[in-house]
Design a protein around this nucleic acid. Structure first.
Length: 859
RNA sequence: GGGCGAGUGGCGGAAUGGUAUACGCGAUAGUCUCAAAAACUAUUGGUCGCAAGGCCUUGAGGGUUCGAGUCCCUCUUCGCCCACCA
C-alpha cells in the first residue's frame, strides 16, 4: 500500500448512518426541557442551591448579536456543568429595557418606547429560545413592567427614608443631544457615553444617592471578593481613597477659615501660595467690596464658560488671578497669597489647596505668574540639588529626597517620613489625618420619560414651614436611619414626602409626546394629570416629582427579584433570598467594572443595613468574560459589523454555534469572529453524532489504553470547566474523539461518559443521542462522570534526555523498568543519540528529575 | 501622565521552570467519483540534507538557572481602563 492510499477507517461510519439535522432535534428538546421543567429548580426546597447568573442584558431592537451567544452560552456551560454535578442550579433570564438607550432608539425610529420595548422583548426571547440555554423561564424579569418598577420605586423610598437620597442643586453633566443629565461615569473624554456629543455643565436640581457614605466599606470589602482581579483594581481606583492630612487655616483680616486636604504632607513647609477653584462658593466672599471683586468675578465667569465649552483643554490652559487675600500660614509663619486657579477641582477635597515647589502643576503655575517658590527637599546629588534650589525643575515624589525643613525632619528621606510628619502636624494642632475619595454621590435623576417615575411628592406649603417626612412621619414611626451624619441634608428636604407604599407603583403614564425638552425638566412635567396631587401630610396642593430614575438603579437589584417573581406583596422573599444569595457565580462584561457592579454592591449594603438581608456583598464570585470582535473591532451598529446569530443557528444549529465561539479562544478573552471556523465545529459535532448513532457500540470491557484516556479526559475536562477554560476542554474532547476513530470498537461506557462530558457544550445533540441509546431522560440531570486517579498511571512514559539543556533523545520507559538515577543514567549514556554528544566531554553534573527529565551537564 | 494586560506557525490558539507549536481552521497531495461537493487518508514552524540527522525559532536585548515561551531587568509594539484627585 502506498503512503497516500486511503485506508478505510476502523469504525465504519456508513453503516446504520443517521443524518444529523440540528434544525429538527434542537426545537424538539427545547420544548421537552421546558415542559419537564429540567431547568426550573424548586426555589423553596432545593438542597444544593447554586445561583448561576448572567449579567442583566440590555438588548437592542436588533436583537442578539453573535457575541451574546458567546457570553450567554459560556454562562450556560458552567450552569449545566454544575447541574450535572448535583447542584440545584438557578439560571434566570430577563431584560433591562428602561433607559436612555432604548428611548433614543424609539425616538429615532419614530415609535413609542412602550411599543419599541414590546418588540425588542419578543425578538429577544424568541432568539434566546433557539439557543437552548437552560433558563428558568418562569422567573423572567423585565424592568419596565409596573410589577417590577413598583419595587424599584420602593427601593428609592427606602433609601430616602434612610437619609441616603437627597436633592440638591448641583453642577451636572448635561448632554445637549440626549437632553439629559449624565453621571460622571457616563462621561467619556468629556463626551456623552451614548451619543458622543460634548457634555456641558449645568446647574440643576438633582436627586442623589449618598454612595459616598459607604466608600470605605465598598473599598475594604473588595479584599474578600473572589472576582477577576482587574475588576477589583478598577473598583479600587474608582473609589480612589487618598490618605493625608486635613489642615485648617485662617484668612488674614477675615473671619473665614479654610480646610485643605494634603495627600503629600511631607513637604508642607514648601507651601508658598494658595489656589482656590473658580467654582468655590467662597470666592465671592474673599473679594466682595474690594478692588479685586470685578476682575476676579469676571475671571471666574470666563473660566466657568470655558469649562462648559467643548474645547477647554485643562492640560494647556492653566490660568489664574490674585484675590488680594492671604492665608495665615502658621507652620511657616508667613502669608500665602490666594489665587483663583483654573486647574483646581471644586469637587475634590475642599476645592482649595496650598501650593508648593514640589508639585508640578503648582510649580508651573508659579513660574507663569511669578509667584514665590521655596523648595524644602533636595536630591542627594549636589549638582541636582543646586538645580532644585535654582528652581530649574520641579522635584517631587522622590523616595530618597532629603528634607531640609522643618528642622525636626532635617536630613530625613521623603519616603520614610510620612507618618512622622502626620503625627507632627496633629501634635502641633495644624490639622488631622484624613482620607479623601474620588467617588462621588450617585446622581440618580433623569429628565427623561422612559424610566420609573421617582416616587416623591413635594408640598410647597409644608416646605415653607420646614416640614418634611423627616420632621413628621419618621418621628411617628420608629425608622432606623442608616446615616446619622445627614442631619443637614434632611433639613434641606423640607416639603418632600415619599409616596405611600400602598400607592405604589407610581405608574409611568402613556403619553404621546415623550421627547426630552432640554429645559432641565422631564417630559412628565407637561402633564398636570400626572403631577398634580394632594400633600400626604397637610392635604394641600402638592406636585409629584416628574424626573425618572437612572436605569442603573433598575439593574442594581434585579438579582433579588429573580428569586421572587411570584410575589407581588414584597420586593423579594427574605427566606428564598437567604437560601440563594449571594449569587454563587456572576458572569459579565468587564466594561461594567465600575458602574453596575459598584451600584449593585451599594444597594445590597443598604438592604443589609436596613435589615432585609444578612449579607452585604451581592456576588460571591465574579468572572469577566471576553468580547467577540469582528475584523479586530468591537461589534457595533455604527461600524456596521454586527453579526446576527439567527442564520448560523438555522444552518449549523445552536450546539455548533456556541461550541465554535467557545473554542475560538479563552472565555476571558473572546476572539475574532469568522465563519470558516464555524463549519469546522459543525463537522466535529456531526462526526460525534455519526459515530455514536452508527452501530459500533459494544458492551465489551475497555482496553487499558481506552480506560486511561477516558479517565484522563474526565479529569482534564472537569478541571477546565471549573476554571471556565472552555477552549481547552473542547480540545481535549476532540483529542478523545480522534482516539475513538482509531479503535475497532467502542464500549457503551465510553460513549456515555463522552456524551456527558460534551453535554454542557452541545446540549441538544448529546440529549438526542443519549435517548437513542435507550437512556433515561435527561442527560442534563444525570450525574457528572468521576475519574479514577489509579487509571491515570502511565504504562509507558517518555523521559526526555538533555545534554546541556538541549533535547537529544527520548527514553521510553515501561511501567516496571527501574527508575532510579543510576539505571536511567546508564541507559541514557548507552543511547547513541546521547552518546554522540557526550563523546570527548567531561560530565560535571547529572540532573535527574523523576518522571520529568534527565540532563547531562558537560564541558 | 498613571494603572492593567498582551506579543508563540499562513490564521485562532495550547503549554504546574522540564519533549514549544496540543486542538482546530486554512493549505497541499491522495482515495472515492464521469466530475464536483461531502467523507476519508497523509503531510504541514523555518532552514540545510538523498537520507540518517543537524542547525535555528515564542517582539528585541541582557540576566537568574543544569534547563526559560514561562521568573527578573531594560527597550519596543499593540490593546483596554483611568486621568488637572493636590
Amino acid at each position: 500500500m502506498s503512503k497516500n492510499e486511503a485506508k478505510p477507517p476502523k469504525v465504519t461510519l456508513t453503516e446504520g448512518k443517521q443524518h444529523y439535522v440540528p434544525s429538527t432535534i434542537e426545537p424538539k428538546w427545547q420544548a421537552k426541557w421546558e415542559e419537564k421543567g429540567v431547568y426550573q429548580p424548586d426555589l423553596k426546597n432545593a438542597n444544593k442551591p447554586f445561583y448561576n447568573l448572567m449579567m442583566f442584558p440590555y438588548p437592542s431592537a436588533e436583537g442578539l448579536h453573535i457575541g451574546s451567544i458567546f457570553t450567554f452560552g459560556g454562562v450556560d456551560v458552567y450552569g449545566r456543568f454544575k447541574r450535572m454535578q448535583g447542584y440545584d442550579v438557578f439560571e434566570p433570564i430577563g431584560l433591562d429595557g428602561f433607559g436612555i438607550h432604548s428611548e433614543n432608539h424609539a425616538l429615532k425610529t419614530g415609535s413609542h418606547p412602550i411599543e419599541h420595548a414590546k418588540r425588542t422583548e419578543e425578538n429577544f426571547y424568541r432568539q434566546l429560545h433557539t439557543t437552548g440555554i437552560g433558563y428558568a423561564w418562569k422567573n423572567k424579569v423585565e424592568t419596565y413592567y409596573p410589577s417590577y418598577y413598583k419595587w424599584t420605586q420602593w427601593l428609592f423610598i427606602e433609601l430616602f427614608k434612610a437619609g441616603l437620597a437627597y436633592k440638591k442643586k448641583s453642577p451636572v453633566n448635561f448632554c445637549p443631544s440626549c437632553k439629559t443629565v449624565l453621571a460622571d461615569e457616563q462621561v467619556i473624554d468629556g463626551k456623552c457615553e451614548r451619543c458622543g456629543s460634548f457634555v456641558e455643565k449645568k446647574e440643576l436640581d438633582q436627586w442623589f444617592f449618598k454612595i459616598t457614605s459607604f466608600a470605605d466599606r465598598l473599598l475594604t470589602n473588595i479584599e474578600s471578593l473572589n472576582w477577576t482581579e482587574k475588576v477589583k483594581i478598577a473598583q479600587r481606583n474608582w473609589i480612589g481613597k487618598s490618605e493625608g492630612a486635613l489642615l485648617r487655616f485662617k484668612v488674614k483680616d477675615m473671619d473665614i477659615h479654610f480646610e485643605m486636604f494634603d495627600s503629600v504632607p511631607q513637604t508642607f513647609m514648601a507651601q508658598t501660595f494658595t489656589v482656590i477653584a473658580p467654582e468655590h462658593p467662597s470666592v465671592y466672599a474673599l473679594v466682595k467690596g474690594t478692588e479685586y471683586e470685578k476682575p476676579v468675578m469676571d475671571f471666574v465667569d470666563r473660566i466657568k464658560k470655558k469649562k462648559a465649552a467643548k474645547t477647554f483643554d485643562t492640560e494647556k490652559e492653566t490660568e489664574g488671578i490674585f484675590t488680594g487675600r492671604y492665608i495665615e500660614y502658621a507652620p511657616g509663619k508667613r502669608l500665602l497669597p490666594i489665587w483663583v486657579a483654573s486647574f483646581v477641582i471644586a469637587e475634590y477635597g475642599t476645592g482649595i489647596v496650598n501650593a508648593s515647589a514640589h508639585d508640578e502643576r503648582d510649580f508651573a503655575f508659579a513660574k507663569k505668574y511669578d509667584l514665590p517658590l521655596h523648595p524644602v527637599m533636595f536630591p542627594q546629588d549636589p549638582k541636582l540639588a543646586q538645580k532644585v534650589k535654582n528652581l530649574e525643575f520641579c522635584y517631587h515624589h522622590a523616595e530618597d529626597g532629603i528634607l531640609q525643613e522643618p528642622v525636626e525632619f532635617k536630613g530625613r528621606k521623603w519616603g520614610e517620613v510620612r507618618q512622622d510628619v502626620l503625627n507632627y502636624l496633629e501634635e502641633k494642632g495644624f490639622g488631622k489625618r484624613s482620607a479623601q475619595y474620588h467617588l462621588r454621590d450617585w446622581l440618580i435623576s433623569r429628565q427623561r420619560y422612559w424610566g420609573p417615575p421617582i416616587p416623591m411628592v413635594f408640598c410647597s406649603s409644608c416646605a415653607e414651614k420646614g416640614l418634611s417626612w423627616f420632621t413628621e412621619e419618621s418621628s411617628k414611626r420608629s425608622y432606623r436611619s442608616v446615616n446619622t451624619a445627614l442631619q443637614d441634608d434632611k433639613k434641606n428636604m423640607a416639603g418632600w414626602y415619599p409616596v405611600e407604599e400602598k400607592d405604589l407603583p407610581v405608574k409611568l403614564p402613556y403619553v404621546e409626546d415623550y421627547k426630552p425638552m432640554g429645559t432641565g425638566k422631564a417630559p412628565l412635567a407637561n402633564y398636570p394629570e400626572f403631577y398634580e396631587v394632594i400633600c400626604p401630610h397637610c392635604g394641600g396642593k402638592a406636585t409629584r416629582e416628574t424626573d425618572v430614575s437612572d436605569t442603573f438603579l433598575d439593574s442594581a437589584w434585579y438579582f433579588f427579584r429573580y428569586t421572587s417573581t411570584d410575589r407581588d406583596d414584597v420586593a423579594f422573599d427574605k427566606e428564598i433570598v437567604k437560601k440563594w444569595l449571594p449569587v454563587t457565580m456572576y458572569i459579565g462584561g468587564a466594561e461594567h467594572s465600575v458602574l453596575h457592579l459598584l451600584y449593585a454592591r451599594f444597594i445590597t449594603m443598604v438592604l443589609h443595613n436596613l435589615g432585609y438581608i444578612d449579607f452585604e456583598e451581592p456576588f460571591a464570585r465574579f468572572y469577566a468574560h471576553g468580547l467577540i470582535i469582528k475584523d479586530g473591532a468591537k461589534m457595533s451598529k455604527s461600524k456596521g459589523n454586527i453579526i446576527n446569530p439567527d442564520q448560523y443557528i438555522r444552518k449549523f444549529g445552536a450546539d455548533a454555534v456556541r461550541c465554535y465561539l467557545l473554542f475560538l479562544g479563552p472565555f476571558n478573552q473572546g476572539g475574532d469572529f469568522s465563519d470558516t471556523g464555524m463549519e469546522g465545529m459543525y463537522k466535529f459535532i456531526k462526526r460525534v453524532w455519526t459515530l455514536f448513532t452508527s452501530q459500533n457500540i459494544t458492551s465489551a470491557n475497555l482496553a487499558d489504553s481506552a480506560n486511561k484516556i477516558m479517565h484522563e479526559t474526565i479529569k482534564g475536562v472537569t478541571i477546565d470547566l471549573e476554571e471556565l477554560r472552555y477552549n481547552t476542554a473542547l480540545a481535549k474532547l476532540m483529542t478523545y474523539y480522534n482516539f475513538f476513530v482509531k479503535q475497532d470498537k467502542i464500549s457503551r461506557e465510553e460513549v456515555e461518559v463522552y456524551l456527558k462530558l460534551l453535554a454542557p457544550f452541545a446540549p441538544h445533540m448529546t440529549e438526542e443521542v443519549w435517548e437513542r441509546l435507550g437512556n433515561k431522560f435527561s442527560i442534563h440531570s444525570g450525574g457528572w462522570p468521576s475519574y479514577d486517579e489509579d487509571a491515570l498511571i502511565q504504562e509507558i512514559t517518555n523521559l526526555p534526555v538533555q545534554v546541556n539543556g538541549k533535547l537529544r533523545a527520548i527514553l521510553i520507559l515501561q511501567h516496571n523498568d527501574p527508575k532510579d538515577g543510576k539505571s536511567i543514567r546508564d541507559r541514557a549514556q548507552k543511547d547513541k543519540r546521547v552518546a554522540k554528544f557526550l563523546e570527548g566531554k567531561t560530565i560535571t553534573e547529572v540532573i535527574y528529575v523523576v518522571g520529568k527529565v534527565l540532563n547531562f551537564v558537560v564541558t
